[in-house]
C-alpha cells in the first residue's frame, strides 16, 4: 500500500500543514509515503520534502501553470501520477479544498473532507454542522481522497528523512483558466494557523483604526492576529485573518478573543485551542461558555493594561 501526500507550499517553503498531512498518512497502516511537490522553481521545496521523517519518495513537477496552484492544473498533475495509490491526501486549506474535489470527480471518488482522526485505512472522523457533530465515516472507494485538518494531527518531523527526489512531468495547462494577479497580505507576524498565540478581534473592535491596537499586543506576545467574520465584513481586517467555519481553523496554546460574541460559526474555527480567553462587556456572550478565562470588561481598557503588564 502506498500513500501520496500532495505538498502545500509557496514555491520556496514547504507549508507546515503538509507535515500534519504526512502524520495522518503514517496512521493509515504499514504504508510507503510519497510526497508530490508541484509548482514553479520549487526545487528547494522538493529538498525540504525529502527531509521529512517517514517520507520514502518525493515527486517533483515543474511548470509555469503550477506556479499559483491553479486548481485545474494541480488536479491534472496529481491525476497523472495517481496510479495505484490507495490514498491521496492534501491539506484542508483553500488550495487543497479547491483542487482535490476536481480530481475526485475525475477518478469517480467521493472525497472525505477535513478529517480530524484516522480510525483505520478506510474509516475517518470528520466534523459536520460547523463542528457541532462529529461523523465517523467508512469509505467504499478503491482510492481514498482525503483533506486533512492540520490542527488535529501532530506535525511530522521536518528532518531525519532521506527520500529520493524524482522529476515527473506536469500535466498540460488547462486553457480556460488564466492567473491574473494576487493580493497577498503583508505581515511579519507568525502564520495564523501554526502560531502558538493568537489575538483575535471582532465587531467589538469598532473600526479599522481601533483594530490596529491589536498589533502592538500581538508583537509583545509573538502572536498572530485573527478576526471574526463580522470584523472582516466590516472592513476592519483582511479576509485571510478570518477564523471559523468558513475561514481558518486554528488551535493555538492560547486564543484571546476581544469583542467577539462567540457565534457557533466562529467557535468552529477556534474551540480546540488549549486555553481560550474572552474579553467581552456582555457577560451573557456565548464565547464565555467555551472560555477557560473570561474578563467581563471593556476591551479598550483591557488591551492597554495587558500591554503595560506584559
Amino acid at each position: 500500500m502506498s500513500v501520496l501526500v500532495v505538498a502545500e507550499h509557496n514555491n520556496s517553503e514547504l507549508n507546515a500543514m503538509t507535515l500534519s498531512a504526512v502524520s495522518a498518512a503514517s496512521q493509515l497502516g504499514d504504508s510507503d509515503i510519497h510526497l508530490l511537490v508541484a509548482g514553479e522553481n520549487c526545487g528547494d521545496v522538493a529538498k525540504q520534502a525529502a527531509a521529512v521523517a517517514g517520507v520514502t519518495k518525493v515527486f517533483h513537477a515543474e511548470s509555469a501553470g503550477l506556479a499559483h496552484a491553479i486548481g485545474e492544473n494541480v488536479a491534472a498533475t496529481v491525476g497523472s501520477i495517481a496510479g495505484d495509490y490507495s490514498h491521496i491526501l492534501a491539506t484542508a486549506t483553500a488550495s487543497g479544498k479547491n483542487w482535490m474535489p476536481r480530481l475526485a470527480a475525475q477518478l469517480d471518488v467521493q472525497q472525505i473532507s477535513d478529517i480530524t482522526a484516522v480510525e483505520s485505512a478506510d474509516t475517518f472522523v470528520r466534523p459536520i454542522y460547523a463542528g457541532n457533530a462529529m461523523a465517523t465515516v467508512q469509505s467504499s472507494d478503491a482510492t481514498k481522497l482525503i483533506t486533512v485538518r492540520s490542527t488535529s494531527f501532530e506535525a511530522a518531523a521536518d528532518t531525519g528523512g532521506s527520500a529520493s527526489v524524482e522529476s515527473v512531468d506536469a500535466a498540460g495547462d488547462f486553457a480556460g483558466t488564466q492567473f491574473v494577479s494576487e493580493e497577498v497580505g503583508e505581515s511579519d507576524r507568525p502564520d495564523l494557523v501554526s502560531a502558538k498565540v493568537v489575538v483575535s478581534g471582532g465587531r467589538g473592535m469598532g473600526s479599522e483604526e481601533n483594530f490596529k491596537i491589536l498589533e502592538p499586543l500581538a508583537e509583545k506576545l509573538g502572536a498572530a492576529i485573527g478576526a471574526s467574520r463580522a470584523a472582516v465584513d466590516a472592513g476592519y481586517a483582511p479576509n485571510e485573518l478570518q477564523v471559523g467555519q468558513t475561514g481558518k481553523v486554528v488551535a493555538p496554546d492560547v486564543y484571546i478573543a476581544f469583542g467577539i460574541s462567540g457565534a457557533i460559526q466562529h467557535l468552529a474555527g477556534m474551540k480546540e485551542s488549549k486555553v481560550i480567553v474572552a474579553v467581552n462587556t456582555d457577560e451573557d456572550a456565548p464565547i464565555f461558555q467555551v472560555a477557560s478565562y473570561g474578563l467581563v470588561m471593556d476591551l479598550f481598557d483591557v488591551i492597554p493594561q495587558l500591554q503595560e503588564a506584559l
Partner: peptide, 12 residues
Amino acid sequence: ETDDGIETLNLS
C-alpha cells in the same frame, strides 16, 4: 478568497 489574500483569475 485564498489563505493568503485575494487572487484574480480570468475564466472563459
